[in-house]
Design a protein around this nucleic acid. Structure first.
Length: 289
DNA sequence: CATTCCGCCTGTAAGC
DNA sequence: TGCTTACAGGCGGAAT
C-alpha cells in the first residue's frame, strides 16, 4: 500500500508534532524485515529531529541526549549522514501517533515512547523495517538509500533525466519505473495510473519511450503523485495517516483495480495483465506502444 | 551487466 | 460450512 504519496501523507501528519520530541524509550515487537541494529536502550533520551522522506523511506534524525551542539546539527540532517532511524512501511505498514494507545497487539512491532505521545508502527505482513543509522557512509541504512533514483516531486526530475534513465533498457517501461533506480516512489498503483495518464502501454520497452513521450510521462508521474498526496493517499484496505485518517485516491483511480470495467475516458474495457509477477492495469484504447 | 524470479509474512477473498 | 488456493501496496538477492 504505501507508495510515495502514502509515505508523504504519513510524514506530513507527523512532522510538526514529532519534531523536537524527546524519545523516552523504544518497545519492539516481532522482528521486521531487517534488524534495528542498535540496542533500544541506547536511543533513550534522544531528541527527534525533522522527519524527512526519501522515496518510500522515512528518515527520523535523532540527536544524542545531552549534546546540544549535536542536536542542532541533527535538525536538518540528511538521511544516513547524521544519526537516525530509517523507516519503511513495506506492504502493510502504517504509523500512528497518539497520547494514548491501546496495549500493543500482535501486529504492533515498534512503539516510540516520547514526551509527545506514542508513535506506533503497525505492520501485519512485516515487510516493513526500522533501521538504525549511526550516520556513517555505507552503514546498513545508507546502503538502503544508495542507488535510489531521483525524487519525482523535486525539480531534478525532468523528462531528459527520465529519458536518459530508460535508455538502453529492454524491460517493459512499467517494470523499469517500479525498479526505483530511475525515479523513486512510483509503486504498482501509481505506475499504472501514470502510464494511463501519459497514454503509454505498460508493455512498451523502456528504451523505446521517446523523449517527447517522456515529457508526458514525467508530467503524468508528477501530477498523479501530487494529486494522491492531496487526496490523502490510497486506502485500499487499511492505510491511514498518523491520526487515523484514510485516503481517497482509490475512488478516483482511472485503471488500477478496474479490470473488466469501462475506461472512464474512452469507454473501452480496462485490461489486467501480469508483468514481473505484478498486476498491471491499462486501457488498450487509450494507451499505445 | 541486464533481466527474471523467488521469497519474506499475514490477511482476505474467491473457488471448490 | 470448511478447506485450498491465489493474490495483495515492496524490494533485496539469487539464479539465469
Amino acid at each position: 500500500m504505501p507508495e510515495l504519496p502514502e509515505v508523504e501523507v504519513t510524514r506530513l501528519s507527523l512532522v510538526d508534532r514529532l519534531e523536537g520530541a524527546r524519545l523516552l524509550g523504544l518497545r519492539l515487537g516481532k522482528p521486521l524485515r531487517w534488524p534495528l541494529g542498535v540496542a533500544p536502550l541506547a536511543l533513550a533520551g534522544a531528541r527527534i529531529g525533522r522527519l524527512q522522506r526519501r522515496g518510500k523511506y522515512l528518515w527520523m534524525p535523532l540527536g544524542t541526549a545531552g549534546d546540544a551542539s549535536r542536536e542542532e546539527a541533527v535538525e536538518g540532517g540528511e538521511p544516513a549522514e547524521t544519526p537516525g532511524l530509517l523507516i519503511h512501511l513495506g506492504m502493510s505498514g502504517a504509523l500512528r501517533l497518539d497520547a494514548e494507545l491501546p496495549p500493543a497487539g500482535p501486529h504492533d512491532h515498534v512503539d516510540w515512547l516520547t514526551d509527545r505521545g506514542t508513535l506506533r508502527l503497525h505492520d501485519p505482513r512485516r515487510f516493513g523495517a526500522v533501521v538504525w543509522s549511526p550516520g556513517r557512509d555505507l552503514d546498513p541504512a545508507a546502503r538502503l538509500l544508495a542507488g535510489l533514483g531521483v525524487e519525482p516531486l523535486e525539480p531534478g526530475f525532468t523528462a531528459e533525466r527520465l529519458h536518459a534513465g530508460l535508455q538502453g533498457r529492454r524491460v517493459a517501461v512499467k517494470h523499469a519505473l517500479l525498479a526505483g533506480d530511475v525515479v523513486v516512489g512510483v509503486g504498482n498503483i501509481y505506475c499504472s495510473e501514470a502510464l494511463f495518464a501519459a497514454g503509454i502501454d505498460p508493455r512498451t520497452a523502456a528504451g523505446r519511450v521517446s523523449l517527447l513521450r517522456c515529457r508526458r510521462l514525467a508530467q503524468a508521474i508528477r501530477e498523479v503523485l501530487q494529486r494522491a498526496v492531496t487526496l490523502g493517499g490510497s486506502t485500499l484496505r487499511d492505510f491511514h495517516d498518523a491520526h487515523g485518517h484514510g485516503g481517497a485516491f482509490q475512488t478516483q483511480a482511472q485503471v488500477y483495480g478496474r479490470a473488466g470495467q469501462p475506461c472512464r475516458r474512452c469507454g473501452g474495457t480496462v485490461q489486467r495483465i501480469v508483468q514481473g509477477q505484478r498486476a498491471s492495469y491499462f486501457c488498450p484504447g487509450c494507451q499505445h506502444r
